Simulated assay, not measured.
Amino acid sequence: MTRRIQTSLSHFTVLADGVVGELPERWKCRRGPAWMAMKAWALDAGEAEHMTRLIAQHIGFAVTGEVLVYETEPQVAPQESPHGYDIQFTPYDG
């Protein structure tokens, strides 16, 4: 029997412009300007942006520019609390 979680969370995709520093081995991206993308389950767009900034800082990415938040279809089911997943980086020439 499948258990379905009832949630007040919404799903978002967040894009943040910034600078890649020293990333953990889990992520591969050259140092310098890049966009960070992250999917998130959050209470609202503001919380999704805040989570992205905190996670970025924790893993070595400095958000220095625009942060775009879009409500999107989820790729994974919600959990009981807000969380981010599927973090990716796309470098660009500054």
Results as ranks from 00 to 15, higher is better:
Met1Phe: 05
Val19Lys: 14
Cys29Gly: 11
Thr52Asp: 05
Trp27Glu: 05
Phe61Asn: 04
Arg3Met: 07
Leu54Gly: 15
Pro91Glu: 08
Gly60Trp: 04
Glu66Ile: 05
Met36Ala: 10
Val14Lys: 03
Leu15Asn: 08
Gln57Asn: 15
Val20His: 04
Phe61Arg: 09
Trp41Cys: 03
Glu71Tyr: 01
Asp44Leu: 07
Glu66Met: 09
Met38Ile: 15
Thr64Phe: 00
Val67Gln: 02
Ala37Glu: 13
Ser10Ala: 14
Thr52Gly: 04
Arg26Tyr: 03
Ala34Phe: 05
Gln75Arg: 15
Ala77Glu: 12
Glu47Pro: 06
Thr72Cys: 08
Gly65Ser: 07
Gly18Arg: 07
Asp44Lys: 09
Gly32Lys: 14
Glu25Thr: 13
Ile87Val: 12
Met51Gly: 08
Val67Arg: 01
Pro82Val: 00
His83Val: 01
Pro74Ile: 03
Val14Ala: 01
Trp27Tyr: 15
Glu47His: 14
Pro78Tyr: 02
Ala45Cys: 07
Gly18Tyr: 03
Gly60Met: 08
Lys28Phe: 09
Gln88Cys: 02
Gln79Met: 08
Trp27Gln: 07
Tyr70Thr: 10
Pro33Gly: 11
Leu54Asp: 11
Val69Lys: 05
Val14Pro: 03
Ala34His: 09
Ser81Leu: 11
Pro74Trp: 03
Glu80Gln: 09
Pro82Ala: 07
Ile59Cys: 01
Lys28His: 14
Glu49Ile: 09
Ile5Tyr: 07
Thr7Val: 07
Tyr70Met: 12
Gln75Asp: 12
Thr90His: 06
Gln88Ile: 01
Glu66Val: 05
Gly32Cys: 09
Tyr85Val: 06
Ala16Cys: 06
Gly21Val: 07
Asp93Pro: 04
His58Ser: 15
Arg31Phe: 02
Gly60Val: 05
Glu73Gln: 14
Val20Ala: 04
Thr2Gly: 04
Glu80Tyr: 04
Pro24Gln: 10
Met51Ile: 10
Val20Asn: 05
Arg26His: 12
Glu25Ile: 13
Leu15Glu: 10
Ala40Gln: 11
Gln79Val: 04
Lys39Ile: 02
Glu25Tyr: 08
